[in-house]
Design a binder for these strands. Sequence first.
DNA 1: TTTTTTGCAAACCATTTGCAATTAG
DNA 2: CTAATTGCAAATGGTTTGCAAAAAA
Lengths: 130, 130
Amino acid sequence: MSRRRTLQFDAVRDVVQRACDHPNADQILARVRERVASVSVGTVYRNLEKLAADGEIHILQIHGRQARYDGMIAAHDHFVCDGCGTVSDLLPAQPGRLTHPALAEVGYDIRAHTQTFFGLCPECKTGARA
Amino acid sequence: MSRRRTLQFDAVRDVVQRACDHPNADQILARVRERVASVSVGTVYRNLEKLAADGEIHILQIHGRQARYDGMIAAHDHFVCDGCGTVSDLLPAQPGRLTHPALAEVGYDIRAHTQTFFGLCPECKTGARA
DNA sequence: TTTTTTGCAAACCATTTGCAATTAG
DNA sequence: CTAATTGCAAATGGTTTGCAAAAAA
């Protein structure tokens, strides 16, 4: 079960960690192939899964059925532009989460905002599962 | 292009708007069939799409590739329990968005939090597309 | 009648998986 | 040597689509 060092694994990790555009699996495959021409789709997905399991990357479900991958694991938010379609990282200068008004002040036209929390609900917290 | 009133459309809308568990398409199909036994998968998806286009419901991409549907359109956040797996609405009593500490105080054990903003970035705001 | 909507089944497409061959340790 | 990883190709599974028949307007 131990993790083995392979050219493919290292390439996938490096591509995701260097990317600043939240690429999807296809884009990652293409970039990895620039270095290791023979990698297959399955290998890319398997390695992305491993990296996510190890907490080295995050899988983003922005919209639609195609996942995007994020190499930045520090807590941060995202902005999806309806104009150019890019997904960008929002890094608060001050500790704490960004707010709608704070972004408006920096020039963003925020039209929607969704927030999702993950964890244990009050019932599960005091009950069975960990 | 005008919208026609059909049994199927009304049933889909009613099922989603009455649901408080953020059902997926399969669950909605099952519930709609309790009233209109003959509805097909395609019809359900087409009507969900229309409702979302009209802003009557929201499509949620919580995790994985299976969408969930939300009949509550007022601004609110979501909590996904790692224990029981339920997705619940978080409705702030006071205007404004819920925060991590606020939820902790009410008994939630928050382990992750993601925030996504949609709109126009500063460049697109002052540029071409509306 | 005219146009939208339906049901069915096939198509799509991102992701997953089985398996034999490779390869890291 | 032996267990993990790969490439390939086939399978999955949620969602979409083409089309002729049914139903609104």
